[in-house]
Amino acid sequence: MSNSSSFCPVPKEQQPINEYQELQSSWFFGWVKLDPGKYITKLLWVGIWSLIVTAPLAAASFPIAKYPIQFGICTIVGSSIFVMLATVRLYLGWIYVKNRLYGESIFYEESGWYDGQTWLKTPEILTRDRLLVSYEIQPILARIKNTFFTLIGATIAVIISWLLIY
């Protein structure tokens, strides 16, 4: 990889392949590369920690002693919103790198916001980057989308149960 990118004028930290590797090894964005059990566990932890915020808010609206079902539903829906926001953030990070890898050119900044340049990828780099997108990033994006739509479906089911209570 380093031989084909050695003539690339794009600073190392702005090269899409390096952005991909950095994202892949990061604490948060690396979650989607974990096996399914660990990935779901991470998202469950987001949900559990978000209960710290959502439970008191739900208790303010629905005292647990008087409205336990409404309290529970409110807490679950509120918590699922935090998990959905986490999945949206995962998606945005990975789609950014996907677009940078898939594009024929790379926009980069040499020393600041005022001196942006565009570099056309060589055919070899473009092919490598697009293969990376096809075999590595597309499955990641599919996993995040499936997670998000599962959360949406579960949240809608909980909201429907709320409507059935009244």
Rank of each mutant, 00 (worst) to 15 (best):
S105D: 11
Y108W: 07
A86L: 03
V88N: 05
N99L: 10
I95G: 07
Y96K: 15
L92A: 15
N99H: 12
K98H: 13
W94H: 11
F107W: 06
G93T: 03
E110K: 11
V97S: 04
E110P: 00
W94L: 03
I106C: 11
S105K: 09
S105P: 05
Y114T: 12
I95Y: 09
N99Q: 13
R89Q: 13
W94V: 06
Y91V: 09
G93D: 04
R100F: 04
G103N: 13
D115W: 01
Y91W: 13
Y108D: 05
V97M: 05
E109D: 00
Y114W: 11
R89I: 12
Y102A: 13
Q117L: 05
I106H: 01
R89N: 13
I106Y: 00
R89W: 12
Q117A: 07
S105F: 04
D115M: 00
R100H: 06
I95K: 15
N99T: 13
R89M: 14
Y96V: 12
V97K: 00
G103M: 08
G93H: 03
N99E: 13
A86D: 06
G103L: 05
E104M: 15
T87R: 13
N99W: 08
S105N: 12
Y108T: 07
Y91G: 12
L90I: 05
L90S: 05
V88W: 05
S111G: 02
S111Q: 02
G93M: 02
W94Q: 05
T87F: 12
Y114E: 08
L101Q: 03
L101Y: 01
F107G: 08
I106P: 02
K98D: 07
Y96R: 14
I106S: 05
N99K: 13
S111L: 00
L101M: 10
F107M: 07
E104W: 11
G103R: 08
L90D: 02
L90V: 05
N99M: 15
Q117H: 08
Y102N: 12
G112F: 00
Y96F: 12
S111M: 00
Y102L: 09
L90Y: 02
W113S: 10
E110H: 05
S105L: 06
Y108A: 04
L85G: 11
R89H: 14
Y96I: 09
S111I: 02
I95A: 11
S111R: 03
Y102E: 10
Y91E: 09
G93V: 06
T87Y: 12
T87K: 12
L101V: 08
T87P: 14
E104Y: 15
G112D: 06
Q117P: 02
L92E: 14
Q117R: 07
G93W: 00
L85N: 04
L92R: 15
G93Y: 00
E104H: 14
R100S: 09
A86K: 01
Y102C: 08
L101E: 01
T87W: 10
G103W: 00
L85R: 03
S105A: 12
Y96D: 14
Y108G: 06
